[in-house]
Each structure stands twice: as C-alpha cells, then as structure tokens.
Design a binder for these strands. Structure first.
Lengths: 207, 207
DNA sequence: GTCTATACAGTGATAGAC
DNA sequence: GTCTATCACTGTATAGAC
C-alpha cells in the first residue's frame, strides 16, 4: 500500500472479485458456477481448478473482505487525538459504511441464505467478523466509561440498539433494491445522524 | 373462530401450511416442488394443479400470514382502556412476537433471497405488511403526542430505532440457527425489555 | 383432482488431453 | 492452468389417461 507497487491480480483473486459481484447481484443459488466461469472467461473445469466447489468459493468471497473492513475501525481505536464521544460518532459512521456499502456487509443476507446448508459460513462470519467488530467498539465504550464520559451500559442491550438499525437498513436496501424510490424510503445519512444522536443521548452521563 | 365450527382444510391450504414450514426450514432455493409434493403426499403434477409455479406458491405462503399478524396490533390500537405509554409497550411486545415468532415475520430473509427474481414479492410485502404495520404504530405515537405524553418525533428516525433492532434480532436468530447457544447470544426477552425502556426514555416528554 | 410418464434445460463436478 | 467432453442428477413444468 502506498509504496508504488501494485501486485498483479492473480486468477484466484480475479475470480473472487467477479463472483462476489455476481453473488451480490443475484444471490447464492442463482449464481451458478457456469455463470461465474463465463464472467471470468474461463471454463468451468478451470474454475474448479482454483476452487474445490461452490461453497469454498463463496466462503473465500465472504472472508476476503473481513480484514480491510475491520482495519478502518482499528485505525479509529488507535487514534489518540479523539475524545470518547467523537470516537464513538466516527465509529458509528464507519459501521454504517461497513454494513451498507462494503461487500462483506452487503453479503449478510446471503450468509443467512446459505447458513443452513453451510453452517461453517455462519460460524466464520460470526467469529471472525461480528465478534472482532464488537470487541473493538466495546473497548471504545469501556474507555468512555472509565473517563466518566459514558454511563455504564449492558453490552448486549447496547449492541442491540447500535447494530440493529444499521443491519436492518442494510437488509432493507438489499431486499427493496428494485424500488425506484429506494433513497427516499431508506436514506442513509439522515437515519445515521438521528441514530447517532439518540445513542449518545442514552449513553452520555448527564447528571 | 370460537363458534365451534372448524372449516375443513382444503388441499390448497394444506399445501401452503406444509410448504411454509419447508421454506422456513430450508430456504427458497433449497425447497423444491418435488419435496413439497412429497411432503404433501401428492405428485408434482397435482401440486402444479393447485399452484401455477413455485413463485405463486411462495407468494401465497407469504401473503397468507399478513392479516392475522396485523390483527393483534389492530386490537391493541382499539383498546380504549390503555394509556399511550402502556399501549406502546404492548405494541412493541406484539412487534417482537410478529417479527421473531410468526411465520410471516420469519419469512423476511427469504423475501430478501427472492426479491431480485420476483420483485413483486418484495412490493407486496412492503405495501401490504410493512406499510400497514407502520401506519398503526404511527397512529399510536400521534395519539401520545396529542395527549402531550410523547414528544413529537421524526417518523423515519423513530421507526429506524423501533424496527431496526427487532428485525436484526430476527435475522440473527435465523442465520445463526445452527448455534447451540443461540438463546444465550440472542435472547428475546431481556433485549425486548431494554429496547422498550430506551425507546420510552427517548420519546417521553420529561421537561 | 390425482395419477404416470416425460420433456428438457441447467446444475455441480470430474477425467484426461495438451 | 486451461481446455474439451461428459457425467449423473435435480430442477421446473407439462401432456394426457383415469
């Protein structure tokens, strides 16, 4: 990153990039290995040389986005110039971005779709993405409590109020993609603002 | 209802009841017409006599639960003995029940799954279920505002905070069904309580 | 309304040559 | 690594007899 060197995209990476787009556009079941192969301009046999099966391909697509998405949150945690309130505000902004705009966030409904057939996908998503995400945010909260800026709160209850609206907004935007007035019904910015204000009102210690 | 007469279940109703269970258990794509037919102990040809295709069958299953689910909310609205706060508390309870326990509520992730292939399913779900649901709740809020018990609130922002956590909890419970510690991770009752308290704290007019 | 029988497109996946 | 060719199978859906 930033050293002027851009690694050539491997075939495997190209397949993942292309198939992620197809999965997001059409869902898991409607994205066949034939379509992926055709979109990559290779044959199915070649595709199967790179991935042992459709499930492995999908898991690779999901897993691929974990680290970069979490890095933004980590950077925020390590920024010592921020007070707890500003840091939480920024964190919520990043969470909206991660969940609604990023590929891994938008994949959540797909993971729900395949979770019965491949429970390990759900396991991985929960332990390698959701878990770390909550850990980072929780440390920010604990920091604010230590500094007497935030009231002590129950962890699960707080996350219920924090992640609930974000995930639902993301799901709604995916499931009502076909609506031409999507932005009117589910606008990100204003909902993010009011959500942030409400959370801060609840958590701030105002004696 | 309650008149001692129970209408015989028609074949069509039986098919809908059975296939709803299969859709909820295995998802839309993994529920084939063959499996539905087998579960109903009829042949595929007979199944196609009652429903012109898999999409029509699915739409029928989704639509079927709308009215009974909304009726609980309507009953609450018409109960004149309740003050706005108690009514809202009860309404939230009903919404948790509708979204997490009822068949139509649990179908939401499936609707997301098929929404691209059948946008009319998403349309119907939004206009015949989500819409009326929000209208009823909104009238309860407006009533409380009129009585000066609630502060005026922005509609979209309030629904973001009200429905967001409920829908996400429902989605999480569906997508992590395979977890043996599901109830520990996603317990309905305590989250409902803290969610309700938070909403009331935000909306009550305490000068 | 239910059946037997069938059409036929598409699926995930593999064998083996180059 | 990529190809051609092919596998066994399941999918939705229909025709026509009873």
């Amino acid at each position: 990153m930033g050293n002027g060197f851009v690694a050539a995209e491997t075939r495997r990476e190209e397949i993942m990039r292309v198939s992620t787009g197809l999965f997001l556009e059409n869902g898991f079941a409607a994205t066949s290995m034939s379509k992926v192969a055709a979109a990559c301009k290779i044959t199915k046999a070649s595709l199967y040389h790179h991935f042992t099966g459709k499930d492995e391909l999908f898991i690779a697509c999901v897993t691929h986005g974990y680290t970069p998405a979490l890095d933004d949150l980590r950077a925020l945690e390590n920024d010592q110039s921020l007070d707890p309130v500003t840091r939480l505000r920024e964190a919520i902004s990043v969470l909206y971005e991660m969940t609604i705009k990023s590929e891994v966030g938008r994949m959540s409904p797909l993971i729900a779709e395949v979770s019965r057939a491949f429970p390990n996908v759900a396991r991985s998503f929960h332990s390698d993405y959701i878990g770390p995400q909550q850990e980072i945010v929780w440390r920010m909260i604990a920091d604010g409590v230590d500094q007497k800026v935030f009231q002590p709160v129950d962890r699960k209850s707080f996350f219920h109020l924090l992640f609930g609206p974000i995930v639902t907004l993301s799901l709604s935007r995916e499931m009502f993609t076909s609506f031409e007035d999507l932005e009117d019904h589910f606008p990100v910015e204003p909902l993010k603002q009011s959500h942030t204000d409400a959370l801060l009102k609840l958590i701030r210690s105002c004696a």
